[in-house]
Each structure stands twice: as structure tokens, then as C-alpha cells.
């Protein structure tokens, strides 16, 4: 890392929200002036700080190629991945780095994501096939198998849910969603989009089992379509669309349950 620093004396200032639960009452900003290297991502800069200036700086990172979802943080007010945010986009202005909003801060840039994981699990994000589906008779036909032994899924059927399967669980959308801050019980964009992903999969029969969570007051109905979640999504998952498609579906089901009251009462 250090040997990558070219010999020039340009620097950039990083303001980082620091919080050590063992010594600090509340988070405060710490300022670091570091060498400016044009190729550096914010992760490179944080690594430099940790290696050379302050080894106590805590943050999560791993793949550095925007696919593991570890390094979400708020940079100059916008939730972004540290690995695909580059110093050159800000230089010579300073950068202000905070942990993701709407999560408790564990330490420095690390947030407590356990609640997020619980919500992710709550939507039953796995294929529930005809055998597993217990709540209601499947509405869809199980697709045929090909000679390979896989379920038939035409490119168009794959295309239906593909976008919603791209989520890397980086939690930027939770940071972007004001409803998340206003109602921490909200299941939230990523988890609801994941449930939707399985509902749209032609191999899945579990939509009814997911209804309880998805159509709950704290499910899609806590969303007011601010839409910023989809804007910050690094993988174009468009969770806002997933949520609002479910509102439309929910409204339709609600109307149907009045027209055909017996259908829902299995």
C-alpha cells in the first residue's frame, strides 16, 4: 500500500465518525489528512489510515469489487460502497464518512446488522416447492423438468425475478430509507425485494407463506415510495418496485378476499 504512494505532497482530508463504546459517550468526527493517490478507492484510504495512522479504526470490508456487500457507509451524506467510491471523485474537497444510517453503531463505521439479518430470514428466502408449501394449495404449476434434470425456466421466466436476485445485502437501501428510521420495525427494502424474488420464481410455490410478513403493516405497507432506496442500490435491484408491486398485489388480493371470501380460509 505505502509503496503505491507517488512522490507528491497532495493530500485529502477525511472526516470519519468515530465511536468506541468502551471509551466514548457518543460518536464524534475524527479528522485524517492522508496522501492523495488518484487510483485509491475509499477502502484504500481507510486501509492506509488503519495501517499507518490509527490502527483502532474499525470498518468492514472484503472483496473490494462491489459484490460481498461488506463496506457500505455514508459518504458525504450518500450511502455508498467504500470499494467503489474513489478519492478522485471528491478531491480536493474533503470527504465525510459515517456509518450507515438507521442502524445502531457498533463501533466507528461498523453497524449492528443483526436485525437486518433477522428481517432477511423472516421472508423465507428459499424455494418452497409444492411439497414444502403447507399453507395453501399452490396457485402455480410446478415447471417440468428438462432432460438435464433441472426445472425448465425460460430466459423470460428467469428475467422476471433476476433483477431482484442481484441484492448483495449491503444495506445501503436501509440507510437510504427514512421510513426505516421512522419505524424500525419496517421489514425494509432488501428483505422485501428478496421475498418478491422468490415469489416471482416459477419454481416456487411459497408466495402464500410469505404473505404474512410481506403484507404486514410493517411489511410493504410501511413504505411511502420515497424511492431513494432504489437510487442508492449499487446493483440496480430496485427494491422500491418490488415493494410497490406487492402493494398492488396485496390490494388485489384484498379485494378478491371479499369477492371470494372462502378462497383465503383454508
Amino acid at each position: 500500500m505505502t509503496d503505491m504512494i507517488k512522490t507528491n505532497d497532495r493530500t485529502i482530508t477525511l472526516e470519519i465518525l468515530r465511536y468506541n463504546p468502551e471509551s466514548d459517550e457518543a460518536p464524534t468526527f475524527g479528522t485524517f489528512e492522508i496522501p492523495y493517490v488518484e487510483d485509491w478507492s475509499l477502502l484504500d484510504a481507510l486501509e492506509y489510515i488503519k495501517d499507518e495512522m490509527d490502527s483502532s479504526l474499525s470498518y468492514r470490508w472484503s472483496c473490494r469489487m462491489a459484490v460481498c456487500g461488506s463496506c457500505g457507509m455514508v459518504i458525504n451524506g450518500k450511502p455508498q460502497l467504500g470499494c467503489e467510491t474513489f478519492l478522485r471523485s471528491y478531491y480536493p474537497e474533503k470527504m465525510r464518512i459515517e456509518p450507515l444510517a438507521n442502524f445502531p453503531i457498533e463501533r466507528d463505521l461498523v453497524v449492528d446488522s443483526s436485525d437486518f439479518i433477522k428481517k432477511l430470514e423472516s421472508v423465507k428466502p428459499y424455494i418452497i416447492d409444492a411439497v414444502d408449501a403447507t399453507k395453501a394449495a399452490p396457485k402455480k404449476k410446478q415447471p417440468e423438468k428438462t432432460s438435464t434434470g433441472v426445472y425448465k425456466q425460460k430466459p423470460a421466466e428467469l428475467g422476471l425475478y433476476k433483477q431482484f436476485s442481484m441484492c448483495i445485502n449491503c444495506m445501503l437501501c436501509y440507510s437510504a430509507c427514512p421510513q426505516m428510521g421512522l419505524n424500525p420495525l419496517f421489514t425494509g427494502p432488501a428483505a422485501l425485494a428478496l421475498g418478491h424474488r422468490y415469489n416471482l420464481d416459477n419454481r416456487d410455490q411459497g408466495a402464500d407463506e410469505r404473505t404474512e410478513v410481506i403484507q404486514d403493516k410493517n411489511g410493504v405497507w410501511s413504505c411511502t415510495f420515497v424511492g431513494y432506496c432504489s437510487e442508492v442500490c449499487p446493483k440496480n435491484v430496485d427494491p422500491a418496485a418490488a415493494i410497490n408491486q406487492n402493494k398492488a398485489q396485496g390490494a388485489q388480493d384484498w379485494a378478491l378476499s371479499f369477492l371470494m371470501p372462502r378462497k383465503g380460509d383454508k
Partner: peptide, 17 residues
């Protein structure tokens, strides 16, 4: 489909309309 426990879907439909 399980019966919704709230009338938000109705209100939302009217809101959409």
C-alpha cells in the same frame, strides 16, 4: 392468500386511484 389484518390495501387502492 391469508386475510389481511388491516385495511391498508383498501386505503392504498383509493390513494392510487
Amino acid at each position: 392468500m391469508s386475510k389481511p389484518k388491516h385495511i391498508e390495501p383498501l386505503l392504498w387502492s383509493l390513494f392510487g386511484a
